[in-house]
């Protein structure tokens, strides 16, 4: 790994994020090429967390746009403050000013309500812009994003084109529930995130929960790794692993024993659907617990 990448990896680690070499490379390229990054992967692998960590590493703001079906420009880019505009029109009525003056008076910055995307390109210090779960939006919004992602500018009909005063570090995440357009993909660097392997998961637990006993951390990592091999509807992600580890350390548990009822009672931290709870019956759970010893 090059020096530059090694340093960046250390910075991420200082912010409690354990990243693989390939992710470190991609994040470095994102910075050097000023390109957005599209992160795909199962829920719970740490996609959103990267944006938070980057904001911490670069000591800048994190601006988040949570996507949903029906998201439009007025909730993501800008909206005119209509009630203030109407009020202003009324006040200008008797001023005797010309039509052009009135128009220029009501379409100005003062009446513009900034939403996350516009806010992100108007910052003096480049922020981290997280466009979370882009696959939840519809195609129209995705097309709207293209201008921002390629030229870092937004066109407002009444004001013209607003160019970015600083290029934000854009992270888009997707869970793959819908196919994204090739146009959007072409504008971004791409990284696919997998669930961590045993070693990485153990490092994550030890980094995030420094007070945890080494043996317990190993057992948790082993248990979650074997749980992911079972066909569950919702595989436990890193967040679930950490929740479980926190729950166990909160009860001052230092080690799991094969007959431990604690696993039974705390499995709700890992299993999130009724079907999965039913699937992981006592005998199945018993096998997993036996592997811990």
């Amino acid at each position: 790994m090059g020096m530059q990448f090694e340093q960046f990896s250390k910075k991420l680690e200082q912010s409690n994020y354990i990243a693989d070499a390939d992710l470190v490379t991609t994040l470095s390229l994102m910075e050097s090429l000023s390109r957005p990054l599209l992160l795909e992967g199962e829920a719970g692998v740490g996609k959103t967390e990267i944006a938070k960590v980057l904001a911490d590493v670069y000591q800048c703001d994190l601006i988040r746009l949570q996507c949903y079906e029906g998201l439009d420009a007025s909730t993501s880019v800008y909206e005119w403050n209509y009630s203030h505009q109407l009020l202003s029109i009324k006040m200008l009525e008797d001023s005797g000013s010309s039509y052009q003056d009135k128009e220029s008076n009501i379409f100005k910055d003062e009446f513009l309500l900034e939403r996350p995307l516009l806010k992100a390109i108007r910052q003096s210090k480049p922020p981290v812009l997280l466009i979370d779960e882009i696959d939840r939006t519809d195609e129209a919004f995705e097309a709207f994003l293209l201008e921002l992602l390629s030229d870092f500018q937004i066109s407002i009909p009444e004001l013209g084109t607003i160019k970015a005063s600083s290029i934000p570090r854009v992270i888009l995440t997707s869970n793959g529930t819908r196919e994204l357009s090739d146009a959007l993909r072409r504008r971004c660097l791409y990284h696919y995130m997998e669930y961590p392997d045993y070693e990485k998961e153990l490092r994550i637990i030890l980094t995030r929960l420094p007070n945890i006993q080494q043996r317990l951390a190993q057992q948790i990592a082993t248990f979650v790794q074997s749980l992911r091999k079972i066909e569950l509807r919702k595989q436990p992600g890193v967040a679930e692993t950490l929740d479980w580890a926190r729950a166990l350390t909160g009860q001052n548990i230092e080690q799991l024993t094969p007959s431990d009822f604690v696993i039974q009672s705390s499995k709700s931290c890992l299993l999130k659907t009724q079907d999965d709870v039913a699937r992981l019956n006592s005998s199945e759970l018993g096998k997993l617990i036996d592997n811990l010893s």
Binding site: M1, G2, F5, A21, D22, T25, L29, R185, Y190, Y192
Partner: peptide, 13 residues
């Protein structure tokens, strides 16, 4: 490996 990571990040979509 680094070359591999760089080319992959830039060529895969």
């Amino acid at each position: 490996k680094s070359a591999h990571h760089i080319i992959r990040a830039l060529s895969c979509h």
